[in-house]
Design a protein around this nucleic acid. Structure first.
Lengths: 227, 227, 227, 227
DNA sequence: CATGAATGAGGCTTCATTCAT
DNA sequence: CATGAATGAAGCCTCATTCAT
């Protein structure tokens, strides 16, 4: 069900996930190269705008390899989407915030999340693309919930700690909080082109970026603070 | 040049904005019908995923009419994008908040904006699509800044009033505030498919929607409140 | 750029001159077949009148192959034009006139050139077509001057020899002479349809053809003869 | 049989040659304007390359007018072709050479013809185009032979006079002579683009033009001269 | 595994022509 | 006569996919 569930599923044998691949995909090898190039291409142009030819050309490999490893365009897209999420969420497991008091810890999370979004536009664009696709392909990634769980878990622990210490409001919902942090971080990247043009404020300029980050951190902190 | 950035733009007359059309485009007539259908198609599938044939078929008109009125796919896309913005922003001019105190006024703005985003996913998707396109086409819409100005102006007046009355912090930036409101409203629509799947929370469910709206309103109000 | 001067030439690889083709193009293989058919089609209908679909159909190959090998209609046209010149000029290198006295040698050249034009209307028509195109495409053929050099070189040697022997006028210009021979040979083919109709003289009739050839040979010989 | 003999002759009523037009077409009025523009367009791009839209646009009139006056693209093309011939041949009737001795008279004819060709590339291009069309449309112009008769008649009288005076060879054929003069004059215009590029000699440069004219005049005179 | 060649469906666009007013 | 709008056929080109080697 990985590749080729939608269109023209007639003849493809779909040898999925062949080759002794480790879970990490930044390894070398043809398969990994294709995946890296695919993430770039799909994030730049979306699913329909991406070109198999371009991916093959930039990979240096032959087009047949894409079909061999991923079964087709959609299979490759799903793999690229999954890998994007995987890389993006990997960072959260690297936070070690349990030694920090809740407020500085949250401050760190928000600021880091905000920055990390800006540093990974290809992930933001993959997610935008997938939402344009109505999430049709993301549903095929079985492990996706699991991949994203740590992000919520981290906030959950922090909320509990902050509430216990009396510095956070007691009615916080970690998912809701995660959503706010995500929204404020995501938008800055996802809408940067239209926003920049319309309001004449270049969101990638360092000063603008950090002012906005401060504002976002401030907003979140005011939101959670106990009355 | 607005339309026909691609091929053989030499001889095509591309009679843009023909026909005595009023600024409103919800009128009938072939041109208006095409535009309405195009907004649906582009917002559903993006620029590269949209199909001229589909638009023509659903319009009931001949495919050539698209070229007659809009010069080509890109010309039509730009027109659809502009019209989307125009319709979306039209609502703001209908707010009459000067009689309300600043806090209720802002509460109204945020809640309305949040709801209005949810009610107009085709606009959100157009903007997402255009950002996937790196804002390449939005730049061709000369009046866009002007179309969006009232949104800022409204907030600007409100901030000044709230600050004068001592109920808002004195360091508010209307554009920054607008951005936060937009981000929190936008994300709920733009990322609904991935978010729903990953966190198992259907953002379109009325209860979820209004809980989230309350949270967003709350967040904005806490943010602006004078200390 | 050779091929794809029109649309979206961004990503197209346009692998020109692929396949281990020898300089001769009358070989078989898809590429060669397309080229041969294209020469017929373009010479019959000109650039704008030629049909890619017709060429593909007569080739028996898939339409995509034309784009694969030649990048597009214009790329194919340029290749067909170049190949036409190449074939046409190949004959001159097969003359071995150095053993003949100047006058018979020139007589041979003129008569052969005249006949050769009549036997290769597709070349004449390609050249006409290209002149209708203002020579826009011929300029893209880097080797064209080189391809045509032998024709002048042959006449140059002959003129020098004739002058040295005192049988030719001393003020001959080989390029001018070439032009006269070409003009008189070319016109008979290029204008045959209009001329035939207007003056009721079928230039392809053997008797008419050879009478005209004699007249042309005579004209050139009288022109070069030493006083 | 003027317009619409070939394609899609289904429904067109073909109101040919309406409007009280004089034989001359340089008059003003919509019909004449269309014809003038059409000569330019067809001579520039050939029959298949010419665009009805372009002609209409440059005429300033509506496309329907072309159909009204000429029945369609082919009808207009035939009319443009006829008018081109008519204008081109008009000049010959203006020669008054009976007072000149045969040799100067012929010299005048050749030089004038040569120059006149260079001054009327649109005529040369119309004739090229029509030959690419295999003379399919020229046959529909009933008066064409008659239009071209004076050119031969002029030469015929001159040949007879020159022969009678003993200055011309006695075996001259006026049609053959006309053909030689035409060929040498025509080629300089018809093949100028390819020739210029290949041999690096700009045939439109005044010095090149007159040197070539001298050569052509010389060639014809040597050809006719009595032994 | 890897490659170059081939395929076919479908996409965007053009253009001569016609129609209603 | 004149116009703007409409039509439909056909044109060129792209692209995911497959195949033979």
């Amino acid at each position: 069900m990985n590749a080729k569930t939608t269109t023209a599923a007639k003849k493809t044998p779909v040898k999925k996930a062949k080759a002794p691949r480790a879970e990490a995909a930044e390894e070398d090898g043809t398969r990994a190269t294709i995946l890296n190039v695919a993430i770039q291409e799909f994030s730049r142009h979306g699913l329909s705008g991406a070109r198999i030819d371009t991916i093959a050309a930039e990979t240096g490999a032959n087009k047949g390899m894409i079909y061999y490893y991923f079964g087709g365009k959609e299979g490759l897209y799903v793999a690229a989407l999954e890998e994007s999420y995987r890389r993006f969420r990997r960072v959260e497991s690297e936070f070690h915030l349990d030694d920090l008091p809740p407020v500085p810890a949250l401050r760190t999370i928000v600021a880091s999340t905000f920055d990390y979004h800006a540093q990974h536009p290809e992930f933001i664009r993959m997610v935008m693309t997938e939402n344009i696709n109505n999430g049709e392909y993301v549903r095929k990634i079985a492990e996706l919930q699991q991949i994203n769980r740590p992000a919520i878990a981290l906030l959950d622990r922090l909320c509990k700690r902050g509430i216990a210490e009396g510095v956070f409001r007691s009615d916080l919902d970690p998912v809701d909080l995660h959503m706010s942090i995500s929204a404020l971080s995501f938008y800055n990247v996802s809408n940067q082109h239209t926003f920049s043009f319309i309001f004449g404020r270049d969101l990638t300029a360092p000063a603008v970026h950090s002012a906005r980050r401060d504002s976002v951190v401030d907003m979140i902190l005011r939101f959670v603070r106990a009355p």
